[in-house]
Design a protein around this nucleic acid. Sequence first.
DNA 1: TAGATTGTTAATCGATTAACAATC
DNA 2: TAGATTGTTAATCGATTAACAATC
Lengths: 220, 220
Amino acid sequence: MCAMQLVIPKEAIERLSKYRSVLLRLKALGFVKVFSDNLADAQGLSASQVRKDFALYGMRGMKRGGYLIDDLVERLTAVLGVSGLLKTVVIGCGHIGSALLRTYGGRRQGVSVVAAFDVNPQKLNPSADVPVLDVHELVSFVEREGIRVAILCVPEEAAPGIMEQVRRSHLRGVLNFTAAHLRSDAQCIVHNLDIRMEIEKLFCLVEMVARNSDNAAVAG
Amino acid sequence: MCAMQLVIPKEAIERLSKYRSVLLRLKALGFVKVFSDNLADAQGLSASQVRKDFALYGMRGMKRGGYLIDDLVERLTAVLGVSGLLKTVVIGCGHIGSALLRTYGGRRQGVSVVAAFDVNPQKLNPSADVPVLDVHELVSFVEREGIRVAILCVPEEAAPGIMEQVRRSHLRGVLNFTAAHLRSDAQCIVHNLDIRMEIEKLFCLVEMVARNSDNAAVAG
DNA sequence: TAGATTGTTAATCGATTAACAATC
DNA sequence: TAGATTGTTAATCGATTAACAATC
């Protein structure tokens, strides 16, 4: 029906998602129009890239008049498919899991953690605003509530076992904060987010810059 | 001196970093050798890519004999520049900041959060194992302790102000958990890690797969 | 009109993959 | 030797950028 691009490369998704977030802020500030050039600056891209992205995903501007922010946001929201409230659950109430539960429990910037799960009976609290339930209830809960995405914050050793349950459930996506490298498959997309690794990568970048400027100093 | 590649593209760093982490696990299991093919499988890459990466960053294997894990780990550690303990500080002791402080305070998998900072006097605890200090002490602390990387977990509004201090300090890298889009500059590399955005990206991917299979169903 | 910005094409660039000779 | 795996080259692929005509 809608003859639009169905598969969008991950890198493009990242950019589109950032455009949207920047545009929402601009809108909140009362802005009505933007130029490709502005967005490029804001995001460290080339203006060509921005225009190309927009053209590719069906956002038209006005020659000489830039783009209407409302149009862009509407279109981006449709393309990304993130119009509604993004309801999700947290699995594992350790440090990180609890932090996410507290941050996104209720509702925050379009994301809502509607329940959390743990194996430890002492952590359960089924009557809280955002209930903390036994992991055994995970599968039935997500089915009943139509939840499709979960955030995985269990200890690394527990990850494979949980993933087995997840794959048997109605969940289609997992944001994996565990150090375990999990792989996507036909049933379920896994997005690995290993904080330790991110820290390491940053050290690595810093180290590299330092080495380069040392070298420059020697060379100069 | 060392005629090795000094600048490594971000994507390559990501891969090298993952190789290292997989290899450390293999080593822990008692493995001695690997083939490019195995690593490719484990990481969803092509064997060519693995061999290319290794060749490019000075790791040699044995024709028909694969690669020695010890060699690889040693070389990767050197190339990435992550041999020592990665000492860092947490700025902002909200939900996420505290979680990171608890997870990586002390020392864990090569990372150590050695102090945390906050503006709220009630959160301060200078005598704890991992002290929680007033933000005013940030600059002097990182200078005294030689800390080059910080993890930023303050509320979004506070981010720009903190970044000003950071740029005036000896810090060269910031892992930004804030929703503020911060930009790297000559003084300081910023690595943005917006959890809300990561959740959104995952929903987006899930949505896209769903749409595609709907389409396939129609097409079929 | 002159000036500015989009939309789009062609050129460039870099990264990935395929293929195969070298060699253990 | 036959078989397997690396190391490297050339081919492919895709993404980014430059450039400019269209047009407001």
